[in-house]
């Protein structure tokens, strides 16, 4: 695997500061957070680079990155659709909503459409159970969503919500 990409200088400096500390390998998760924050996801090249800079075996880096749901291993779509699968939303049919999104977009949970427009994620309770099932699309909340109004919602989103960069 070639390390042809450059790391953002802020992240690079952060890694440098971690290397000065005792037990610098324990900063792996912190470094991965920074990378995801900046690039939106953890690419294989970035993980590889972190492994070599921190001298943590790549198998461990990928072990950590795949263990935590928070880390995304694929680029996020312009519209990040996050479906709450918390208890209240679930009993109100969030699983059917998820299924509808998966059918409509042709992708599975955690994936992004090939055009890079939509990605499907899940979240746990957002604290508005009275509005269940709840989904968020780029931070905007949609309540009492049903499987039936998923296709309409997708069209509406394209017109009404600004894309993320």
């Amino acid at each position: 695997m070639k390390q042809s990409i450059e790391l953002d200088s802020k992240i690079s400096n952060f890694i440098e500061s971690c290397l000065q500390k005792p037990n610098h390998k324990s900063y792996l998760i912190a470094v991965l957070h920074k990378i995801q924050q900046h690039y939106g996801y953890l690419s294989l090249e970035h993980m590889n680079m972190v492994a070599h800079r921190l001298q943590v075996p790549t198998s461990m880096v990928s072990g950590v990155a795949t263990f935590y749901h928070y880390f995304r291993l694929k680029p996020r779509g312009k519209y990040a659709i996050s479906i709450c699968l918390g208890t209240a939303c679930f009993v109100k049919g969030a699983d059917k909503v998820l299924e509808a999104f998966e059918t409509e977009l042709g992708i599975k949970m955690g994936e992004t459409t090939p055009d890079g427009l939509f990605s499907l994620e899940n979240s746990r309770c957002l604290g508005v159970c009275a509005l269940a099932p709840v989904i968020t699309i780029n931070e905007r909340i949609f309540s009492k969503v049903t499987a039936q109004n998923v296709p309409g919602l997708i069209n509406k989103v394209k017109m009404e919500i600004p894309m993320t960069e």
Binding site: L44, P57, T58, S59, S62, G63, T66, F67
Partner: peptide, 15 residues
Amino acid sequence: SQLYRGFDTVVAPAY
């Protein structure tokens, strides 16, 4: 290393 978690856990090389 162990990758993924729960029922999906596998032992495999990096990535």
